[in-house]
Design a protein around this nucleic acid. Structure first.
Length: 195
DNA sequence: TGAATGATGCGCT
DNA sequence: GCGCATCATTCAT
């Protein structure tokens, strides 16, 4: 009998970013703090790959802000944007090659009470429907930037959920690189950030 | 249901 | 200064 949950190892992230992005749909993200355990089913992501990708933060080389992207796979890259939001990424590929998968949306699973306290007046299925919302509701900020995803605080789990209907589109909110269909989502999810 | 807009602060030129 | 991997609100259709 196979286990119902399996923490994803570093080798999961040390692959081609487009493969990781597709494979990550239907996986579960866990955030364990002192007070609570939050978890959610991932339903929408985008890939940002290397210096040749004009939309990638590492396009113009390494800076203080994006240095985590250049590091070893399986770490959290969290950045601050638009003066009020944070976005969470999973670093992929080999050390020295800057690439990551942006988490755009998820379906809440555990810790609903905590999440509802952050965003009152929002339907449960929309609590994590957007990259900025996800970090706000999960309580993630630059303090968690660089965390190792193979440790106990933040990690991904395979719960052998195969109910994903893969769809692709252009990435959202970028000005260059729009021709690439590097956004992946579960077509059947009610928690997608946009059509 | 979609387009336009303001909020708000940081990193980089 | 300018631009930004966003979101909620407002106004138009």
């Amino acid at each position: 009998m196979s286990p119902r949950c399996k923490k994803l190892p570093r080798s999961f992230y040390e692959r081609d970013t487009l493969i990781v992005a597709e494979d990550i749909l239907g996986k579960y993200i866990i955030y364990q703090t002192n007070d609570s355990k939050l978890s959610a089913r991932i339903v929408e992501v985008e890939a940002y790959i290397g210096k040749g990708d004009p939309a990638c933060h590492a396009h113009k080389g390494m800076t203080k802000r994006n240095e985590v992207m250049f590091g070893k796979a399986g770490h959290a890259y969290i950045y601050f944007i638009y003066g009020m939001y944070h976005c969470l990424n999973f670093v992929t590929e080999r050390e020295g090659f800057p690439a990551a998968v942006l988490l755009r949306a998820a379906e809440p699973v555990e810790g609903l009470e905590v999440m509802r306290n952050v965003m009152t007046d929002k339907a449960d299925r929309k609590l994590l429907a957007g990259p900025g919302l996800f970090c706000k509701v999960f309580g993630l900020s630059r303090e968690q930037n660089g965390l190792d995803l193979t440790k106990k605080t933040i990690y991904l789990e395979d719960r052998f959920d195969k109910n994903v209907e893969l769809a692709k589109s252009a990435r959202i909110g970028i000005s260059e690189g729009k021709e690439l269909e590097w956004r992946f989502y579960d077509k059947n999810s009610p928690s997608i950030s946009r059509k």
